[in-house]
Simulated assay, not measured.
Amino acid sequence: MMQVSAMIRLDHWKRLGFAILVMATLATFFWSTSRYPSLDEKAMMSGAIQLEDPLGFEALIPVEPDAPVIERIGISTVNWINTNKKGMTFGWLFGASFLTLLGYFRRRNFKGGFANSVYGMFIGAPLGVCVNCAAPIARGLFQGGSRAETTLSAMIASPTLNVVVLTMAFASRPSSPAARPGWERF
């Protein structure tokens, strides 16, 4: 009986380690090849961003301004899908891996709603994914047993509180006090 229990614990730790390895691999690949290079490119452009499509930065199919409305909507939809395919693939895979990983932990919730919200913030902020990708990840969290406030907080914190977005927000502020009317007294 003792050997069976030890084997089950060992199997549990192997599976947990594999789930963490899958999540780390997915996150590293996505962050290093897509998300952070894209955010860095946007930060370099500062306020001079030129959209090729009403819904995205790049257009697979150019949208003609004099085309019929239905055609423009269809082309913009195709361009939006093309723009988000890598991120949404990551969101679904990462959401599934979150769902798998949460199954290995007993405590996923706190008693108070505020504590659950803060917990969600600490889950979401390091992810650094866009709103589109945060939705399937939040779904995975919720399906895995996380409370609604944890899920919502993670979904909001991920696109707004990640390192690159916060750095861009502070870097875009004017540097001299003369350029910031009303800030002299601070």
Rank of each mutant, 00 (worst) to 15 (best):
M2R: 10
M2L: 14
L10K: 15
L10V: 13
K14F: 15
L16C: 11
G17L: 04
G17Q: 04
F18Q: 10
A19I: 07
L21A: 12
L21T: 09
T25W: 09
L26E: 14
F29R: 02
F29G: 03
F30R: 02
W31N: 06
S32R: 03
T33E: 05
T33R: 05
S34K: 10
S34T: 14
S34H: 15
S34I: 14
P37S: 10
L39W: 10
E41D: 14
A43V: 08
S46K: 14
G47C: 10
A48E: 13
A48L: 12
I49E: 08
E52V: 00
D53S: 05
D53Y: 02
P54V: 10
A59S: 12
L60G: 03
I61F: 14
P62Y: 05
P65E: 15
D66S: 14
D66P: 04
V69W: 07
E71T: 15
R72L: 08
S76A: 08
I81A: 09
N82C: 01
N84A: 12
N84S: 14
W92E: 02
G95V: 12
G95N: 07
A96N: 10
L99I: 03
L101T: 13
Y104W: 15
R106H: 11
R106P: 01
R107H: 12
R108M: 07
N109D: 13
F110G: 01
F114D: 00
A115R: 08
S117D: 00
Y119I: 02
Y119F: 14
G120I: 06
G128I: 01
C130V: 12
V131Y: 11
N132M: 07
N132S: 08
N132R: 02
C133W: 01
A134Q: 00
A135G: 04
R139I: 14
G140I: 11
L141Y: 12
L141N: 04
Q143K: 14
S146L: 13
R147V: 00
R147I: 00
E149G: 01
T150N: 07
T151K: 02
A154N: 01
M155C: 10
P159L: 09
T160K: 01
N162H: 11
N162M: 06
V164E: 04
V164A: 10
L166Q: 06
L166E: 05
A169H: 14
S175T: 13
A178Y: 05
A178E: 12
R180W: 10
G182M: 11
